[in-house]
Design a binder for these strands. Sequence first.
DNA 1: CTTGGTTGTCTAGCGGTGCTAGGATCCAAT
DNA 2: ATTGGATCCTAGCACCGCTAGACAACCAAG
Lengths: 192, 192
Amino acid sequence: MSLQERKERERAGRERLIVATAREIAEGQGWDAVTTRRLAERIEYSQPVLYSHFRGKREIIGAVALEGATEMAAAVRGAASGANGPRERVAALARAYLDFAERNPAVYDAMFQLDGGLTFAREDTPEPLKDAFAALLESLGEVAGDGVHPGLFTETFWAALHGLATLTRAGRLPPEHTEIRVELLVDRLAIA
Amino acid sequence: MSLQERKERERAGRERLIVATAREIAEGQGWDAVTTRRLAERIEYSQPVLYSHFRGKREIIGAVALEGATEMAAAVRGAASGANGPRERVAALARAYLDFAERNPAVYDAMFQLDGGLTFAREDTPEPLKDAFAALLESLGEVAGDGVHPGLFTETFWAALHGLATLTRAGRLPPEHTEIRVELLVDRLAIA
DNA sequence: CTTGGTTGTCTAGCGGTGCTAGGATCCAAT
DNA sequence: ATTGGATCCTAGCACCGCTAGACAACCAAG
């Protein structure tokens, strides 16, 4: 069945191409510029081909989000592993998180701002999303403090980071003192 | 010049009607349902009339955002004034903030998620936005702690609240333990 | 009382969007 | 060589934000 295998390989390759191209356009010109026409043209196929891979634009956003979640998990783990002691680990994690959001704004939006048709915080949540949260939990759980549920603490800390990331990028917060805000957050929230 | 005054009054009234109707549709069916056609139909005028009041849809969103900012400032001040002691004031403020976001999701989106063409954190920032931030600062500045700039502390605390509000409403955080998360935030961040 | 210009509003339409029905093309199996 | 199925494209739908140009209602000047 080599023929069928080859076709499936090609199909999978084209799907990756769609996702990568969508991401590329979004990072370059924003998600508004990711139209099905433009996307189709860039991959050199007609629009309906997109719909043989994804139900619609929302699912393409979702695919980019999953890709981003995997990368973010790796970035967070990488930063945490290079730091000594719980407090420094958390600080490194926070910086890595915000750095990821700043360097990949479109991907970050796909994950947390836009509707990618994904379910969060449930059993049927896709693995990459669970793993990204797990990556946060691994370092943050250590500094939750006595009597505080690690998962709940992670959620709260994450929310704070998310707020900083989104408000800063949307121009709601001046970007100058990000580092001070992060230190404030780490110093007060984390119990070393 | 009574005639001209009457015309201006009518014009102002229609402008309020546009903003109120936009808000109504948005709260009921989301901002995506606020189309210029639907909005025009609801106010019983044709589309171009909208453009004689606002440059475009973005400015209508901005107008809803300003209205919301005024209300949020009042809600926050009201909650804070009914509490004794800095710590309790901050807790009440946090609850009021999240409550406002939950009860007025479309308005909250207009303020902080969508592009309403507004400038934040600058000299030319519209008064209602500055005042909403000031309302937060009044209570939060008290608990910044020694050596921490009150404005910066307020921004950070606000970001944390914003993160909780948005992640919860977007289904990224389970809504069950909001109260515990708020208490965690207040207990750790606020220095009474 | 009639004109002429201003002001206000509407109809109609432009170029774009996400998405899909139906037809053309190609290739393996008969 | 013919058939049947998979694959892909052309063409189009209903909707979007926005605007040009026609048209009616009004007030001021003659």
